[in-house]
Amino acid sequence: MRTSLDEIKQLEAYVFKQQSPEESLLMQAQLHLDKGLAERLEDQKKVYGLVQQYGRKRLKEEISQVEAQLFGEAKHRSFKERIFKIFNL
């Protein structure tokens, strides 16, 4: 694996606390000394947050599609009627 990818892997292990205490300490020291590395770590954390947001957005789309099926398709008519009745619709 390329050096830069190896670094990403190590930063990931640091973020998710998958390192041994020694490795983690070493990483902390490196982050203290290397500003560029610290910046890359912060950017990488942002990516994890971004992926989480993206995942939720996509999941909500999937759920909305299921909901649309249940309220729109003829084969689910009894379900829809049952729900509408609850709300006196």
Binding site: S4, I8, K9, R40, K46, V47, L50
Partner: peptide, 16 residues
């Protein structure tokens, strides 16, 4: 695994 880290790098570069 390699591809996953490449993707991570790609998105990270864009974030930066």
């Amino acid at each position: 695994t390699v591809q996953k880290y490449k993707c991570l790098e790609k998105v990270r570069d864009q974030v930066k």
